[in-house]
Write a protein that binds this DNA or RNA. Structure first.
Length: 474
DNA sequence: TCCAAGTCAATATG
DNA sequence: CATATTGACTTGGA
């Protein structure tokens, strides 16, 4: 209550001003409608600058559609132009940690795909962009931090150790191990490349593995069940995200109506996906041009299939979905000749991180994964999946280097090279930047897309069995 | 319960 | 030092 008025101004506030670019120094649009203040206790633990009126949540609720991609783009510009780090920005402005900020800035999801909670950071960013003193404030914070840091540094010199608050009674750690931190802190699992490969392969067969399959995978890879579960959750959502950014990028230049901010200006060169495809094969889709790209293709493809009705069999059979250039699977394990350097410690490294191994006592010498044999032979699908995993496993010797290696063919540092420092001229007109997801790990992308197809099919089936109006916009 | 979406926080990389 | 990646956890919905 009482805010019908403020809501209005807030809405304006949030609205993207114009394409104006911040440029360094202080260019302050004008702005003056500081929304009134109307305390609201709600829950906003943020160091929210001053008062700013309604809680962000309310603001989010009334916020018009924001161009997340554009916002992050501008934020990135402002930050780099002024040498401000994302840690500071995140903690001060968004109330998020550096990692989250990095992620957000690099892969913003389209507004309509965000939950209320997910929109919050973007509203904050927009608000920040509109604040004439945004940069100054942050700079101040930065200075203050530095000062505090210096101070601490000096004072600590006087005495011995830097006052570490110490952790509550540690001691009694195994007295004969100098480096292991108090392992009460959980080591953080680090999956070996081979393990990831195996999981990806499994995902490809079945994006939503049954508990049983998960168990098997865990056992075979010698991982905790929860780790496998988490991996699938994470992988699924990250693949999904990958597609979102494409959607955004594609949409931002091909117009595509619907959604999008009231600023339709510039849209220039439209470098459609560059042709990396050298090896022909794959994708039967005619070059064509229109539409919003291949991904749309895949989607429609999936849709068609599931409606056609046979998708199911193909999917369940574990046969392999007609993923275009798949086939590499086996082929891939070919180049086992490489790993010239750094493979030395490979072995030692692999087994290291894991602690207490499950009941299955195996491995011990050699290559970690030995896979005696599949535990049991279950139904077709399952066994098929696990088998393939195993197969892949046994033949590994190479890493997933394929992608990594190919992707970095001596790229002479192109733009964005020295950045960090100051240059930013390009940012004013470049626009290219993330536009095309270079061919870096293009391979991976392909794989992910294919994998996603399975994912989609799965969801379609699920939805179909029910009977709601599915509303995913393809 | 499972899942997705957001995050955190440790660790990798640059 | 900064930014990027990623396994795990938290929340909220069905």
């Amino acid at each position: 209550m009482s805010s019908s008025e403020s809501v209005k101004s807030l809405t304006e506030l949030v609205q993207q001003p114009c394409p104006a670019i911040e440029t360094s120094k202080d260019g302050k649009p004008q702005e003056s409608s500081e929304p009134p203040v109307s305390e609201s206790q709600s829950t906003t633990p943020l160091p929210l600058s001053g008062h700013s009126a309604l809680s962000i949540q309310e603001l989010v609720a009334v916020s018009p559609e924001l161009d997340t991609y554009g916002i992050t783009k501008r934020v990135k510009e402002v930050l780099t132009d002024n040498n401000l780090g994302q840690r500071l920005f995140g903690e001060t402005i968004l109330g998020l940690t550096q990692g989250s900020v990095s992620d957000l800035l690099a892969r913003p999801k389209p507004w309509h795909k965000l939950s209320l909670k997910g929109r919050e950071p973007f509203v904050r960013m927009q608000l920040w962009l509109n604040d004439p003193n945004n940069v100054e404030k942050l700079m101040d914070m930065k200075r203050m931090e530095k000062k505090a840091y210096m101070k601490r540094r000096h004072s600590s010199v006087s005495d011995s150790q830097p006052c570490e608050p110490s952790s509550v009674g540690i001691d009694y750690s195994q007295g004969a191990s100098p480096q292991p931190q108090h392992q009460l802190k959980k080591p953080r699992v680090v999956l070996a490349p081979e393990e990831k490969e195996a999981l990806k392969r499994a995902y490809q067969q079945k994006p939503y593995p049954s508990p049983k399959t998960i168990e098997e995978l865990a056992t075979q890879l010698n991982l905790k069940t929860s780790t496998v579960i988490n991996w699938f959750h994470n992988y699924r959502s990250r693949i999904r995200r990958e597609l979102f950014i494409e959607e955004i990028q594609a949409g931002s230049q091909s117009q595509a109506g619907s959604s999008d901010s009231p600023s339709a200006r510039s849209s220039r060169a439209v470098h459609s996906s560059e042709g990396d495809s050298c090896d022909g094969v794959d994708t039967e889709g005619p070059p064509e041009g229109k539409q919003s790209g291949l991904e749309a293709d895949e989607y429609s493809n999936a849709t068609t299939k599931s409606q056609g009705g046979q998708a199911e069999s193909a999917f369940e059979a574990g046969e392999e979905v007609p993923q275009d250039a798949r086939s590499s699977e086996k082929t891939e394990s070919f180049h086992l000749g490489m790993e010239s350097l750094e493979d030395t410690d490979d072995e030692g490294r692999l087994k290291a991180p894991r602690q207490s191994s499950p009941p299955g006592s195996q491995s011990s010498g050699e290559t970690l994964e030995t896979m005696p044999n599949s535990a049991t032979e279950e139904d077709a699908s399952t066994s098929a999946a696990s088998t393939s995993v195993l197969t892949g496993e046994s033949s590994f010797k190479s890493k997933e280097s394929s992608e990594k290696m190919l992707s970095v063919p001596s790229t002479s540092s192109t733009l964005a090279a020295g950045s960090q420092k100051a240059n930013s001229i390009q940012s004013l007109f470049s626009f290219s930047e993330a536009a095309s997801s270079k061919n870096t790990r293009d391979n991976t992308l392909r794989k992910k897309k294919a994998a996603n197809l399975n994912n989609i099919i799965h969801r379609l089936e699920k939805a179909a069995s029910r009977e709601e109006p599915v509303e995913w916009e393809f």
